[in-house]
Design a protein around this nucleic acid. Structure first.
Lengths: 157, 157
DNA sequence: CTTGAGCGGTTCGAATTTGAACTAGGCTGG
DNA sequence: CCAGCCTAGTTCAAATTCGAACCGCTCAAG
């Protein structure tokens, strides 16, 4: 249980602050460009990538690491804005699908350029391809373990 | 302005979710162990590492990537809990120092073991030393650039 | 000196987030 | 079939967060 080595500390701190700064920048830019928060953008992006452009609430909550109630709130906002629709599931009355609307898709692509630009400018272009590869692999593995252990839900709601 | 390559996307997504999951876990564990939020822990940790165990509000806000008002709130909480004290700056009446108290220091060390354990278990031990080094270097550089560009304050509050 | 711009923090209201109930449906053993 | 437990989402109040407006102070230019 000793302290972290300098290198270990640097790695963790860098991870933390990189994410924090990037997140902050994205929030500002997305809000300016398309009136979306970073979280909302991620939600729309997940939906866009999903088959039929729809996902169950729980899957979505898990994917974006938000609490159940937090997602309910955000989907509410997005629905009011017409970017998403709720759809009941025929086989299970309890379940709800969030579906990306046409408007949602175009809003997403409106925001997309700026978002991608930011990821490039502040992350991708700063790293060598090799560094990027290592990062994707290493953190990908860390992720997998956490999700496995936690079953991607548990206390999240 | 094209899309991100699969690898680029993987890297960014992994960064995002790794941080999110780690943050969530920390929040829970710290709350349980010592009644601190992750943010509060970071604040105390920064103070502990600073000379004289004190920092100006603005420096602190910058260090933890919080908004000015957000920090005011959290320092308020920590002060009520007796873990931190505000101290005026003799040379500049406007400035305020946040000082770690003895209680703050012991609370911090109380929480420290669990915190470090989590960082080890979920991040450090999952990566090879080489991966860790690359991560620290790469993200460290990304960080430096963002902070430079933004002068570590700007629109943060 | 004396504006006037800018800094450092705080305050305030609105938006978001959280966790703990709660509502309802499903699902399994008896 | 039925009780008891689990699951999916929502609701609600409380805690946190954000941004804009604000206050008092500093500092450099005139």
């Amino acid at each position: 249980m000793g302290r972290l080595s300098t290198e270990e500390q640097r790695a963790w701190t860098a991870l933390r602050t990189t994410y924090a700064l990037l997140h902050q920048r994205m929030d500002q830019q997305l809000k300016r460009d398309a009136g979306l928060s970073h979280l909302q953008y991620e939600i729309l992006a997940r939906l866009a990538a999903a088959p039929e452009r729809e996902l169950r609430m729980a899957e979505l909550a898990c994917a974006i690491a938000a609490s159940k109630s937090g997602l309910t709130y955000q989907i509410g906002q997005l629905e009011r804005a017409g970017l998403v629709q709720r759809r009941a599931c025929p086989s299970d009355v309890r379940a709800v699908y969030a579906v990306l609307t046409e408007d949602g898709a175009s809003r997403l692509s409106l925001a997309g350029a700026g978002y991608v630009g930011l990821v490039r400018e502040l992350l991708v272009d700063v790293l060598s391809p090799e560094q990027l590869r290592v990062l994707a692999e290493g953190l990908g593995e860390a992720n997998r373990r956490m999700q496995d252990f936690e079953d991607c839900d548990g206390s999240l709601g």
